[in-house]
Design a binder for these strands. Structure first.
Lengths: 133, 133
DNA sequence: GATAGGATCTATAGTAACTATAGGGTCAAG
DNA sequence: CTTGACCCTATAGTTACTATAGATCCTATC
């Protein structure tokens, strides 16, 4: 490597797969780094930080579209913070909804599952319960 | 409609979109119904029941692969019920994991979000928190 | 200098579960 | 007989990657 970090090193440093990094570049989320003589990508600290930011957001469940928005916002340093806050709160609300949905689902599936008392599938209460409304 | 239920009627009756029904047919989840003279699909009660079963499972968060398994199992009426039960319990465990993940995530995002006190993006604590580990 | 291995390169296709679009045919009512 | 609602097929797009194939590069060893 002439200079800078190789894609493999960056992958290790950020816990991202190599293919995923290239994918982020292709969709314009991560800027194209300069290349070495051998046409290898050579990353610097700014790339590392940006990728780190992306991964952190993804770990928190933001979609790539949201990450893109957050990245855009983070560049407009003199703009009001409200947009960032709204994005975070919206996402929080979304997570809350998902949790509620899953809990409802869990409850119902548990109810259904408890019907099972062994025996033949022909008499299976689970299948029956899945068929009923 | 010569005879049987049209795809639109079936869609309404089961709360499924027309395109989704055709999609289920294409991937072999729903058997091809006979056609009318005008080449319209004409469904019967068995199709309705099967689609109903599929939707019910989907609503409960089963994947289409799992639905396929359940449908296969439900035909083997003399087989032991254990496989069905295991599928349900596996799914239940999965849901539990997802809930736990989302709760962890919610907690962290809430922590981050509470940092916001208005002001400029340049000083935004949310962006900062998203950048940090 | 030859060679073997690992890492990297590009391009393309596949995944889940649909959704959207284009460009038509069919059917019942007025 | 035309309008509008419904239906048909086929293809491409969505999200966020993952997998594959085949070529190139770099480093180390013989």
């Amino acid at each position: 490597m002439d200079d800078g970090t190789s894609i493999g090193e960056l992958a290790k440093a950020t816990g991202t797969k190599v293919v995923t990094i290239r994918y982020y570049e292709k969709i314009g989320l991560l800027p194209e780094p300069p290349r070495t003589r051998g046409n290898y990508r050579a990353y610097d600290a700014r790339h590392r930080e940006r990728l780190h930011f992306i991964r952190r957001c993804r770990d928190l469940g933001f979609t790539l579209a949201q990450v893109r928005e957050l990245l855009d916002l983070s560049k407009k340093t003199d703009r009001d913070c409200a947009a960032v806050d709204r994005l975070a709160l919206d996402h929080l609300a979304e997570i809350g909804r998902k949790i509620a949905d899953l809990k409802r689902l869990e409850k119902e599936l548990r109810r259904i599952s408890e019907c099972c008392q062994g025996g033949r599938i022909g008499d299976c209460r689970i299948i029956e319960a899945l068929s009923g409304s």
